[in-house]
């Protein structure tokens, strides 16, 4: 179990750095959605199913939808 944990943490950090680096906001939101999903998987690995479920529904689902809605109404690229 420890190895899975380690891999997910590394992936999370990679995702976070990618979010920081990306100039395309839409891409960043998609990576953010992946980040949230990974986080919820990690919490499932850490035996907290309730939090994982909530994070999957709220973090990966609704937050990403709202981000995309906002990007649709504003600009897509960071300067």
């Amino acid at each position: 179990m420890g190895i899975v944990n380690l891999i997910i943490v590394v992936l999370l950090i990679v995702c976070a750095l990618a979010i920081e680096k990306m100039k395309d906001l839409l891409g960043a939101v998609i990576v953010f959605s992946i980040y949230s999903l990974l986080m919820s998987v990690l919490w499932l690995v850490l035996k907290t199913p309730d939090v994982a479920l909530t994070e999957a529904a709220i973090g990966a689902g609704i937050t990403s939808i709202l981000f995309i809605a906002i990007i649709g109404r504003t600009e897509r690229f960071e300067k």
Partner: peptide, 27 residues
Amino acid sequence: HSNLIKRIMGINIMGTAVFYFFIAIGN
């Protein structure tokens, strides 16, 4: 970052990090 949406994403990352810390404590 000066882009406002990026900053909001940063807040979200910070938030999940703190939550992750909490979960790690309870593990």
